[in-house]
């Protein structure tokens, strides 16, 4: 089920849950609806493409609180926050906390469908890039110490000749290692290799630097 897409709905009002479910099913996605934020946390599958349609105002755990919990846990599911006119301030807060978007109640089917599609596309892209990064990470980890040495020098832009000098190796040996690195990393050009490794390390830095809110 590689192209499974799930729309999660969290709203305490059964009529709203039902209506949003109908719209989501109409665009051919799987729907999981919950009355409480806690139930969602138990039933959520991080590995599958999905988005969360969330009511900002609920009696027990509010939408904002659930969003905070998810942020703190590092869960990056796109959130479509539903807010009433009364909760504009909360909607602003939701956006500043990284919600995908918010819809002001009441909204129409077309608006909801389009928003869900966009959120799912974002989720899919995020999951793909995560998979890609995991792949590069695995390949990086498979490099031997000597290969890693060469890769680091490639990354800072050294020529084969400079590397040979730096590592006191023959030009031939450097070329040899270099082709092994390219093969293991699954790259056909140096440009691809550098951008792949760099994009991943910056992404990891970002995650590492993200404060635990």
């Amino acid at each position: 089920m590689d192209n499974l897409r799930i729309v999660y709905i969290v709203d305490d009002d059964p009529a709203v849950r039902q209506a949003v479910s109908i719209v989501a099913r109409a665009i051919g996605v799987e729907v999981r609806a919950f009355a409480r934020a806690e139930d969602f946390l138990a039933g959520y599958d991080e590995a599958t493409t999905g988005c969360l349609v969330l009511d900002v105002r609920m009696p027990e755990t509010s939408g904002i609180e659930l969003q905070r919990t998810l942020n703190a846990a590092g869960v990056r599911i796109p959130i479509i926050m539903m807010s009433g006119h009364a909760d504009v301030r909360m909607a602003v807060e939701a956006m500043s906390q990284g919600a995908f978007t918010f819809l002001e109640k009441p909204f129409r089917m077309q608006e909801l469908s389009k928003t869900i599609e966009k959120a799912l596309a974002k989720s899919q892209a995020a999951i793909e890039s995560a998979r890609l990064r995991a792949d590069i990470r695995a390949r990086l980890d498979s490099l031997t110490h000597k290969e890693r040495e060469v890769l680091d020098l490639i990354l800072i832009g050294q020529t084969n000749r400079e590397m040979a000098q730096a590592l006191t190796l023959s030009l031939r040996a450097i070329e040899d290692r270099r082709s092994r690195v390219m093969k293991r990393m699954g790259m056909s050009s140096v440009v691809d290799l550098v951008s792949a490794v760099k994009s991943m390390t910056t992404a990891e830095d970002k995650v590492a630097m993200k404060p635990a809110e």
């Binding site: 009002d13 039902q18 209506a19 719209v23 009433g84 006119h85 909760d87 009441p106 089917m109």
Partner: peptide
């Protein structure tokens, strides 16, 4: 404000259900 919140919920359901039925 309380009324707006309480009424917006069913109004949202009405909007979406009618749209979905039309579709």
């Amino acid at each position: 404000s309380g009324l707006a919140h309480e009424l917006n919920q069913p109004l949202l359901a009405i909007c979406l259900q009618a749209d979905a039925a039309a579709e």
